[in-house]
Design a protein around this nucleic acid. Structure first.
Lengths: 337, 337
DNA sequence: CTGAAAGCGCTTACAG
DNA sequence: CTGAAAGCGCTTACAG
């Protein structure tokens, strides 16, 4: 037993160890005959090059660390899967960590990732601290905030036009004849949640309407459900609800349709945000603001390949367009255009 | 720039590099005063020990590879998250790969993981080949099949009592007065799918009933939906459907309730399998067979710690109990007990 | 095209 | 308790 090393293969093939190395990393031309003998010996012995040794002296691990809050939200599950596949296709492996809702954990996870020599870090919808920013800058590796606006030195951001999205969602409800509109906001300290809310407020103001309610639900399903129950118990309940994420909107639909036996969109219209895979299930059929997942993933991967060891990092702020997707949880607009 | 190494810290603290190493891996006692000076210097310089170098000579990476088919299924998302958290808590990092539905990809992923020196591999609901078994045995690392029965030399298995679960689900439907029962089976070449189906067939036979239908849906939602449409178009459609996974059952509910406007359980009762997190959402309220996630995760982690470098591997077959969870997608049993 | 040598950043006996 | 030395398995100039 004991793993087979390049030296073992070299001995079996009658060449030096560096030659075996050259055959497997194709850094230098090797005589075809020699290469064939080496490959044969490697095959016979079951040799697999040790990537850890390679990483130690090349300085590149071909490993990307991905930190997520959790996977309860369908949208993040899709994001992790797509990002992982995209990176794998380019020869990178992905190390995942779940930080839960405790932002303080993110710092220690980043330390672990740096100790692991990752070539880049993706923070998906998790917050970041000054310490983190400092660490990442010192290590000189790319760090991308995915779906979480929060500009910081040395950190890139991939988001969508949240302000516009919030505005469009709200205006669509207004055009459909709603006026008693409530917004279930995302995390109040996350820029994307703030912007969606601001878009809501702007649209209401532009149309001379007063929000029926606008409450912070921390992007959490249970809180969104509670708030929906509370809203519907009002003397004049909302006739439309705009939730800052599909994940919350699913809970809203559940309360309205199942718990309260109301008809959506008959009694209340509902709009979500994300276009998570489940939003298109007939069970939900949720009108929402679509965040273009594949474009977001593509931008993230590109930023990860940014200046790796240049002193002048150029973090970028990528803002992709988000568009309304009309489905059956809302009624059609009264006005055209 | 350039990362700070133990030698840098040693120089700054006026000690030798091995002493710095000893402070950070606590392998040997170090003079408290020396240790304090070293820590101070490390802190000041922003030193983070290079785990890759440690792995190279210790032979342990504290890294576990997890291979999943995909994350569409809520149950797997929960499994990945829980497994990841459990391993992180023990100081392991998790490298994830998505193999899709192409079993041939699993082999190359395993090679990548072995090149990465993982200390163990978890295959969640993906199949395995002879080549894989051989590679894993040669590497001498623990390999655990999670939720996928398929005994093989050198590979451990964590599953639940699928035969019993399939039997219980079916018998419950029979006791509730159903007789025209259809089964939407899982993958025909996966042991857990086969066993659930066998449990269904056994229960039907024991009660003198003939299955209305029993079709392989490969654990896929779309196929389960198509089959449900086909079944409901029968001259005598089923009055109950038992799906081999909640993921499929959600699709079944969607077709029945939304597309066909039928009442569940009024017109048709539905039972799933897994007790995925979403099964308890009021929107689905799905009667199902609960697979005990935390026990499954615990067993998996334990098996991963099995004999790491012993020649005599002792792969184990852990079968945990699965129990019926009655919710609102089925009507109450006619008979007591 | 290929070998001998040095080095990546640690850990671990071995002396003292 | 601590330093000098060797080694983990590769890669990469440097000669030839």
């Amino acid at each position: 037993m004991g793993r087979v090393t390049a030296s073992d293969v070299a001995r079996a093939a009658g060449v030096s160890q560096p030659t075996v190395s050259r055959v497997f990393n194709r850094s230098t031309a090797v005589d075809p005959g020699t290469a064939k003998r080496v490959r044969a010996a490697a095959q016979r012995l079951g040799y697999i090059p040790n990537l850890v040794a390679r990483t130690l002296n090349s300085g590149r691990s071909y490993r990307i660390g991905v930190i997520l809050a959790h996977l309860n939200n369908n949208f993040f599950a899709a994001a992790l899967q797509d990002l992982s596949k995209a990176l794998n296709a380019q020869g990178y492996s992905v190390t995942v960590y779940f930080a839960g809702d405790r932002p303080r954990d993110v710092d220690s996870i980043v330390s672990d990732l740096l100790a692991d020599q990752v070539d880049g870090i993706v923070l998906a919808s998790t917050s970041l601290s000054n310490h983190l920013v400092e660490q990442v800058q010192r290590a000189g590796i790319p760090c991308v905030l995915f779906n979480r606006g929060q500009p910081a030195p040395g950190v890139s951001v991939v988001t969508t036009s949240n302000l516009q999205g919030g505005y469009d969602a709200t205006e669509f409800l207004i055009r459909s004849g709603h006026s008693r509109i409530a917004h279930l906001a995302g995390l109040s300290d996350a820029l994307n949640g703030q912007e969606r809310r601001q878009g809501f407020l702007d649209a209401m103001a532009d149309h001379g309407l007063t929000p029926l309610a606008c409450v912070d639900c921390h992007f959490r399903r249970e809180i969104a459900m509670e708030q929906t129950r509370a809203l519907m118990a009002f003397e004049t309940p909302p006739d439309a609800i705009f939730a800052a994420s599909d994940h919350m909107a699913f809970g809203v639909l559940e309360v309205l349709r199942v718990e309260l036996g109301l008809s959506v969109p008959g009694d209340v219209s509902v709009v979500g945000y994300d276009d998570a895979p489940m939003a298109s299930w007939a069970m939900f059929d949720l009108t929402t603001i679509r965040q273009p997942m594949s474009d977001m993933i593509e931008a993230t991967v590109r930023l990860l390949h940014g200046p790796i060891q240049e002193d002048q990092r150029l973090p970028q702020n990528i803002v992709l367009p988000a568009a309304l997707v009309v489905r059956g949880s809302t009624r059609p607009p009264l006005t055209k255009g």
